[in-house]
Design a protein around this nucleic acid. Structure first.
Lengths: 197, 197
DNA sequence: GCATCCTCCTAATCATGTTAGGCACTCCTA
DNA sequence: TAGGAGTGCCTAACATGATTAGGAGGATGC
């Protein structure tokens, strides 16, 4: 029967093991790159053999899926932390804050960024459930910008595309540097100016 | 000895076979996606067995390498064709022209775009020789924009980052559609305005 | 005509994701 | 408290992909 203490203990353990596996996958990704995230490598870190992971995940992509959800959940948290620390007082403030926070969040961990951009992993498509945190982040952003009067979908699309473009350029052309990071503030100012006609 | 007719005939045949292989790889990429570009699949299209490809390329990545060079060479050609057809009369013209040309060039073939963005293929790094056409395209762009007075490196960096961001967003969020394509002209106008202070 | 080289082949190896099947331990219940 | 169900891990094996080893056959050059 569901809801009994032992049942809870069991699902708790099960959940803990899943977390352990996903955390191990994150370690491998950060230490050796996303390409090195192999079932054997992950299993070894948790003291298992590769096939045993199938007791917890239906496939390797299911692990990616959990990582994808992790990344966007963390991203949302980073955004909320940033706005708690420096509550934006104007649209310009807000646009700088969210752009810079997202930029730094992405650039600090290439593997995580690659995961968040599902396109970079051939054949991987996040499940609707795992996609939810990503949608939530975007919804939150829309909500915040709406309080400053920006509600048009295209305005937000262009905003995110610009920030994404700078992140991409940074990682592709100057990883570890800050060449495009230095352009970010200028780009945002330009964009906010254009919104004010 | 080098330079004899027979030697030329030999290297010609050799070159032709290399081309055939790379073309076959392009076919597979376009028809079935980059992930399906396997040595067996490529070899089958040229009537060979997979190991035989090693007589012409040192590795699968070497084939990617040739494709990478192809893509950027074509990209440069597309740019020159576009400017021949509609010679830009102003900075604004030019920025619209190159952005739209590049955007359309990328969006029309996802596999090609993934190749041009080497980051999307785990472990693949283009060789300096294959990188040359990519550098040439950027040099050409710099040269053209310079004739309209834009010479600051950061200005061109931001320009390419914005265009790249829109392409990325288009392919990631609305493949086959034109949602971000419609934002492109507006983005470029905004950017040119910002250059004119 | 004979030696050489070049291209392609088959067979085999290695890495990876995945499936099959079995053993042991836990936990519930009679 | 003994047995039975279910769970979680294991080993063995398989499929597919890149790659290497080694050899056969034909074109090329003397």
């Amino acid at each position: 029967m569901l809801g009994t203490p032992s049942r809870n203990r069991q699902t708790e353990r099960r959940e803990a093991t899943r977390r352990e596996i996903v955390d191990a996958a994150w370690e491998v990704a950060r230490d050796e790159g996303l390409a090195q995230v192999t079932l054997r490598a992950v299993a070894e870190r948790v003291g298992m053999r590769a096939p045993s992971l199938y007791s917890h995940f239906a496939s390797k992509h299911a692990i990616y899926d959990a990582m994808f959800a992790d990344a966007w959940t963390e991203c949302g948290r980073a955004g909320r932390e940033a706005e708690a620390k420096h509550p934006p007082q104007s649209l310009r403030d807000a646009m700088h804050l969210y752009a810079a926070t997202f930029f730094d969040f992405c650039v600090v961990d290439l593997a995580r960024f690659q995961l968040m951009n599902q396109r970079t992993i051939p054949g991987f498509e996040p499940s609707p459930e795992s996609y939810a945190p990503a949608v939530a982040v975007l919804d939150e952003l829309r909500d915040r910008l709406a309080t400053f009067g920006v509600t048009r979908l295209e305005d937000i699309d262009l905003y995110t595309a610009i920030v994404g473009g700078l992140i991409d350029a940074q990682l592709a052309n100057d990883p570890g540097g800050d060449r495009w990071r230095r352009l970010l503030d200028h780009a945002i100012d330009m964009y906010v100016d254009s919104l004010n006609h």
